[in-house]
Amino acid sequence: MNIFRFAGDMTHLISILVLLLKIYATKSCSGISLKTQELYALVFLTRYLDLFTGFISIYNTVMKLIFIASSLAIVWCMRVHPIVRRSYDKDLDTFRHYFLVAASFILALLLYEKFAFKEIFWAFSIYLEAIAILPQLVLLQRSGNVDNLTGHYVFFLGAYRALYILNWIYRYFTDIHFSRWIACVSGLVQTALYADFFYYYYISWRNNAKLKLPA
């Protein structure tokens, strides 16, 4: 474990806490893409298949449980909770995310570290996570003004993988056997997708203005 990875995990955790805060405090999920949340739940469920068979550390197991439980809780809130589900922008959240799932699975069948059940699903979860934010970014552009908590949520979500890139660079130089090309390249793509969001987030912070993405 290095400081970059720990900071990345904490940033990821903060993004989830900010989203839970938004939903709990405002009893609303306006501006949040249910499709992106469903994709994240799928990412965690397919990445942490070794949750009960493999053990790395208490920290690793606890964080996996938190990520799985929180992503499922958010999907439940947006689908089932009688008050929250009413504020879901169903007619704006129309990204066909099934294509993202199919593309990631096909790529995982072609590009993997080892042709084994868990490795294929691990690669699938890495590819899917890289593009899972797309429905959310499209929804932000369509819904015009973005409330603060939603903006912070997307910012921390993008920042966490950027910290992981620093972690991979660090491990590349310190861990001689380290080879994680699938996660590295995928992480770079994932972080690049946030580039324009980061720009508009910075502008809104600098001008102390409402976050606004161009349509």
Binding site: R5, D9, H12, R47, D50, G54, I56, N60, M63, K64, F67, E113, K114, A116, K118, E119, W122, Y164, N167, R171, D175, I176, H177, F178, S179, R180, A183
Partner: peptide, 10 residues
């Protein structure tokens, strides 16, 4: 060292 299949990252 990092072995293939041992994913120690989240």
């Amino acid at each position: 060292g990092e072995m293939v299949g041992k994913h120690d990252e989240l």
